[in-house]
Simulated assay, not measured.
Amino acid sequence: MYRLTHDDIEQAARQVYQVMPATAQYAWPLLAERLGCTVWVKHENHTPTGAFKVRGGITFMQWLKREHPHVNGIVTATRGNHGQSLALAASASGLRALIVVPEGNSIEKNNAMRGFGGEVVEYGRDFDEAREEAARLAKTQGLYLVPPFHTELVKGVATYGFELFKAVPDLDTVYVPIGCGSGICAVIAARDALGLQTEIVGVVSTEAMAAKLSFETGEIHETDSANTFADGLAVRRPIAEAFAMYRAGAARIVAVDDQAIAEAMRIYYTDTHNLAEGAGAAALAALIQERERMEGKKVGVILSGGNVDRSVYASVIG
């Protein structure tokens, strides 16, 4: 298992900050009043793509240009935020970006990927089937297959953990949503690189429990479906490298249902006037679920993104 060093993350930060500034973390008073603890929100909804993934796209593309200079394009699978990240970074590097999404994917995320220069292909019933198609297209079209989890992606994403822990080094606990795992692994890596003792808690959907089941049994489990409206959590099978990192570095994994996630989206709006997509609100939903356990503590929650379709958000708020 690869461990990122302090220097690794600082080097990644220099690359990331050429494209975007550090995002803010705020302790919101109405959340504290509601939950009985200090709540620091890390605002990854305030990046150029509206989600944390952009950081990994920047560092991955720098690595790709260095290590594989003759590549003329990339292909990857996504539900949206990873794809926006790579479309932005690939286009800036003059590379083709082919993005495979499952059928019925978020219309607005698809449009955003196209806006950043990506070509979007719909295939399969879910993310896992889209991944298989991306691997096939890599071979038939001579493109570099970008996995959903890679050390260089984690390195870039770890910069947000670095920012949070340097601003608030005495956090007791941080809640992080888990999809393919780059977010939680990056927060663990940043904590360890800084030598902190903060407890890291992963968050999944009750409709996509693979990471939690795997964490609790010690071996990788796959679920038959991942039917949650929080598309960033909709993964049926953990990625082995990510699983190894969060199994070793997380304290526990909490599951929250779609109703709890929707309520957390509403609370973000009323208490902070911030827009959160489903996966982005999952960490707050988990804190609400564990509010008695966290009473009086200093807690971080990762608002990982705000890319939710207007119709979905209108339904949630309504």
Rank of each mutant, 00 (worst) to 15 (best):
M1R: 06
Y2F: 14
H6P: 09
E10P: 15
E10Q: 15
V16D: 01
V19K: 06
V19H: 07
M20N: 00
M20P: 00
P21S: 10
A22Q: 09
T23H: 10
A27K: 02
A27I: 00
P29H: 05
L30Q: 08
E33M: 14
E33R: 10
T38L: 15
H43M: 15
E44R: 11
N45C: 06
H46P: 08
T49M: 02
R55N: 05
G56M: 03
G57D: 14
T59R: 13
T59G: 15
Q62W: 07
W63H: 15
K65H: 00
P69Q: 06
V71E: 11
N72T: 11
G73C: 13
G73V: 07
T76W: 12
R79S: 07
N81F: 14
N81D: 06
G83H: 10
Q84E: 14
A87M: 06
A87T: 10
A89I: 11
A92L: 04
L95V: 04
V100N: 03
V100W: 11
P102I: 02
E103H: 13
I107V: 15
E108A: 05
E108C: 03
K109D: 04
M113G: 00
R114V: 11
G115W: 00
F116A: 03
G117E: 00
V121W: 07
E122Y: 08
G124I: 09
R125H: 12
R125K: 11
D128S: 10
R136F: 06
R136C: 02
L137D: 01
A138L: 00
T140Y: 15
L143I: 05
P147T: 10
P148V: 14
P148F: 12
V154T: 05
K155M: 04
A158D: 09
G161Q: 05
F162Y: 03
K166C: 11
P169H: 08
T173D: 10
T173V: 07
V174W: 01
V174D: 00
V174K: 01
Y175T: 12
V176A: 04
V176N: 04
I178V: 03
G181I: 05
I184H: 07
A186E: 12
A193W: 00
L194M: 08
Q197F: 14
Q197Y: 13
E199A: 06
V201G: 08
G202R: 01
S205W: 04
A210I: 15
A210T: 15
A211L: 12
A211W: 02
L213Y: 08
S214P: 06
F215R: 03
E216K: 08
E219K: 09
F229Q: 12
D231H: 10
D231W: 13
G232I: 03
V235C: 12
I239C: 04
E241M: 13
E241R: 12
F243E: 07
F243S: 02
V256F: 02
D258G: 09
D258P: 04
E263L: 15
T270V: 13
T270K: 07
T270G: 14
L275V: 12
A276G: 11
L284G: 01
A285L: 05
A286S: 11
Q289W: 15
Q289R: 12
E290D: 14
E290M: 09
R293T: 13
M294P: 05
G300V: 00
I302S: 00
S304I: 01
S304H: 04
G305H: 14
G306H: 02
G306N: 02
G306I: 03
N307H: 12
D309F: 01
S311E: 07
A314M: 09
S315F: 06
V316G: 03
I317V: 13
